[in-house]
C-alpha cells in the first residue's frame, strides 16, 4: 500500500498520566522472565523450603517437643531461625539472579539498546533503577516474601510466638536485611552485566563470584579463619547478624561483613556509573 494511503496522524494525548520511566523498565523486566515455565518452576521450587518449614512449625505445635527434636533448626521461630532460613535460600538466589539479571544490561549493550533508551527523556538513574528493581523483585520473591509468609503462618499456628515479634519485628528485620543485601547483590550483578555483552559470560562470572568464592574461602580459612572475608555470599549472610542478632556465622565480625557488603555495593555503583553511557567515550 502506498504511503499516502496509509495515513499518519499526530498523537492525541488521552490525558492519562504517564508512568515513571524506571517503573516502565522494571515492569517489562519483571514480566518478561515470567513467560518462561522453567523460571516459574524454579520460583515454585524456591518456595519449597518455606513450605517445609511451615509444615514443621505446624507439627511442632501439634506434636510438642518430640517434633522439635526431629525438626531441629527448622522449628526455630526466633529471628535467628529466619536468618538460617535465608541462608538455605542461597542456592536459589544464585541461580535465579543468574538467569534473570545477567542479560539485563549486557543484552542492551550488545544491541545498542542503551543508546536507544538514553535517546528518550530518561536518565541513567532511571535506567539503573528500573533494571535494579527487576533483580530486587526476584531476590525478594525467594527471600523476603517467604519470610513474611512464614512469620504470618508462625504467628497463626504456634503458641509461643507473639504478634509483636512475628508481625512487626521479624518482618522489619527481614526487610532491612533484604534491602541491604538485595541492593548489594543487585549492584554487583548489574555491574557484571554492564561489563560484558554476552549474557552467558556474565552468568558465568556471577556463578564464579558467588559459588567460587564460597568454595575458595572455605579452603583458605583452613590457613586463616579471617580469610572467610573472601566468601562473597558468606559475608552477605554474616551481615544478617547485625539485623537479626545472634552469634557470628564465621570468624569475621558481622559489622565488618556489613561493611564488605556496602563496599561491594559501592564498587558495583562505581562500575555502573562508568559503564552506563549512551556512547563509550575513551577519555
Amino acid at each position: 500500500m502506498p504511503v499516502y494511503e496509509r495515513g499518519y496522524r499526530p498523537w492525541e494525548h488521552s490525558g492519562r498520566r504517564a508512568r515513571a520511566p524506571w517503573w516502565t523498565i522494571a515492569r517489562r523486566g519483571i514480566a518478561e522472565p515470567l513467560k518462561s515455565r522453567r523460571l516459574l518452576f524454579l520460583l515454585a521450587v524456591a518456595w519449597v523450603p518455606a513450605i517445609v518449614k511451615g509444615g514443621i512449625l505446624y507439627f511442632t505445635f501439634q506434636m510438642g517437643e518430640l517434633s522439635r527434636l526431629i525438626g531441629g533448626k527448622w522449628t526455630d521461630i526466633g529471628p535467628r531461625g529466619f536468618l538460617t532460613y535465608l541462608g538455605w535460600q542461597s542456592p536459589f538466589v544464585l541461580i535465579l539472579l543468574a538467569i534473570v539479571g545477567s542479560g539485563l544490561i549486557s543484552r542492551d549493550r550488545r544491541e545498542n539498546g542503551l543508546a536507544l533508551y538514553l535517546a528518550r527523556p530518561l536518565g541513567v538513574r532511571d535506567y539503573v533503577l528500573g533494571k535494579g528493581a527487576v533483580v530486587m523483585f526476584y531476590y525478594f520473591a525467594v527471600t523476603l516474601l517467604p519470610v513474611w509468609a512464614l512469620c504470618l503462618f508462625g504467628y497463626l499456628v504456634t503458641s509461643g510466638a507473639t504478634g509483636m515479634q512475628m508481625l512487626l519485628l521479624i518482618p522489619l528485620q527481614a526487610l532491612a536485611y533484604c534491602l541491604v543485601t538485595g541492593a548489594g547483590f543487585t549492584l554487583v550483578l548489574l555491574a557484571l552485566s554492564s561489563v560484558g555483552q554476552r549474557t552467558v559470560f556474565v552468568a558465568l562470572w556471577w556463578v564464579l563470584l558467588y559459588a567460587g568464592t564460597d568454595g575458595l574461602a572455605e579452603i583458605m580459612s583452613l590457613f586463616s579463619p579471617g580469610l572467610q572475608i573472601l566468601n562473597f555470599p558468606g559475608q552477605f549472610l554474616n551481615a544478617g547478624i547485625v539485623f537479626f542478632g545472634g552469634e557470628p556465622l564465621c570468624e569475621v565480625p558481622p559489622a565488618a561483613s556489613l561493611l564488605v557488603v556496602l563496599a561491594y555495593a559501592a564498587l558495583g555503583a562505581w562500575v555502573l556509573r562508568r559503564r552506563i553511557k549512551p556512547v563509550e567515550v575513551v577519555a
Binding site: R16, R17, P21, R120, P121
Partner: peptide, 19 residues
C-alpha cells in the same frame, strides 16, 4: 515500550505503536 519511555501513557503508547 519505547513510546512509554518517550513519556506516553501506556494506552496511548500501545495505540500509537499500532498506528
Amino acid at each position: 515500550y519505547l513510546g512509554e519511555l518517550g513519556g506516553m501513557p501506556p494506552t496511548d503508547a500501545l495505540q500509537r505503536a499500532h498506528e
